[in-house]
């Protein structure tokens, strides 16, 4: 089974938590593993965002964390300029989604990637 990891900044720990309204200083990331054939969620984990309390370079620290976790797709609010560059550098695809739950953000990202 082929899977892909989607990283979503979140206010909470679960798939039903709201997507955070910022990237670099979001409290958490939910890393969601999705079956690439069926689009079903296989597993997920909540991870502390090192950018949350960072004085400077918060967005880049957050991007680095997603890279370490093997995330290939980011779904959430637009990251700042430096963070965006870092995500590009890491080969992480950015999909802008706001105002929904983590679960819905993952769905929206997969839909956008599929189209």
């Amino acid at each position: 089974m082929a899977t892909i990891k989607v990283g979503v900044p979140s206010e909470g720990d679960t798939l039903d938590s709201p997507v955070a309204d910022r990237f670099g200083r979001a409290p958490k990331f939910i890393v969601v593993e999705v079956d690439t054939d069926t689009g079903e969620i296989v597993s997920y984990q909540a991870v502390d965002n090192p950018g949350y309390t960072a004085g400077s370079g918060a967005g880049v620290k957050a991007a680095q964390k997603l890279g370490e976790l093997g995330v290939k797709v980011y779904a959430g609010p637009t990251p700042g300029p430096n963070a965006y560059a870092a995500l590009n550098y890491l080969g992480i695809k950015v999909v802008t989604v706001t105002g929904v739950s983590v679960r819905e953000a993952v769905k929206a990202a997969l839909k956008e990637l599929g189209s």
Partner: peptide, 9 residues
Amino acid sequence: RPAPYIPRI
């Protein structure tokens, strides 16, 4: 459409 300003690294 998204119009990100992305500095070059």
